[in-house]
Simulated assay, not measured.
Amino acid sequence: MLAILSAVLFFVSFLINAADISTNDTFTSTNVMLLGLTALALHVAGIGSGWSWRRR
């Protein structure tokens, strides 16, 4: 789930950068890209991956 979120954030970041959209200081393409990297790192770490490891 977080991998899909990070892909969407990367795409939004690309659109902001490619279209040269003027945004405020909080919603820049770099900040959106860093949010995507954070979501991707959490996914790689196993958080939000959808797997439930239970012991019997």
Rank of each mutant, 00 (worst) to 15 (best):
V44A: 12
A41L: 15
V8K: 11
W51A: 13
S29H: 15
A18S: 12
A7H: 09
S22H: 07
H43S: 10
T23R: 06
S52D: 10
W51C: 04
N17A: 15
T28F: 01
R55P: 04
A19S: 12
T26C: 05
A45L: 15
A18M: 07
F11L: 14
L15V: 14
L40P: 01
L15F: 10
L40N: 05
R56Y: 07
F14K: 07
F14I: 09
S49E: 09
V44L: 14
M1P: 11
A39G: 01
V8P: 00
L2I: 02
I21S: 03
L9C: 08
A18L: 10
A41G: 14
V44P: 00
V32W: 06
T38Y: 07
N17I: 04
I47Y: 13
L42T: 03
V44Y: 06
A41K: 04
S13Y: 00
N31Y: 08
V32R: 00
V32M: 13
W53T: 11
G36W: 00
R56N: 09
L15A: 12
S22E: 12
W53Y: 11
V8F: 09
A18H: 08
N24M: 03
G36H: 01
I47R: 04
M1R: 11
N24C: 03
I21R: 01
S49T: 14
L42D: 00
D20R: 05
D25I: 12
L2E: 05
L5M: 09
T30L: 13
A41Q: 05
F11A: 13
L37C: 13
F11H: 07
L5F: 06
N31L: 09
R54W: 09
G36L: 02
G48H: 02
A18K: 12
F11M: 08
V8N: 07
L40E: 07
S6M: 03
T28W: 00
L15S: 08
F27G: 00
A3R: 11
A3Y: 06
I47F: 14
L35D: 02
L40W: 10
A19E: 06
M1S: 14
T38A: 14
I16M: 10
I16E: 06
G36R: 00
F14Q: 07
T28K: 04
A3W: 02
L9H: 01
V12L: 15
L34S: 04
L15T: 08
D25L: 11
A19W: 02
R54D: 10
T38P: 00
S22T: 11
G48R: 03
L35T: 03
M33H: 05
V12K: 04
I4M: 09
V44K: 11
A18R: 11
S22D: 09
L15E: 08
G48K: 03
D20L: 01
F11G: 02
V12R: 05
T26M: 10
I47P: 00
F27H: 05
S22K: 13
G46P: 03
A39D: 01
R54F: 10
L5Q: 09
A7Q: 14
M33Y: 07
A41H: 03
A45R: 09
R55L: 12
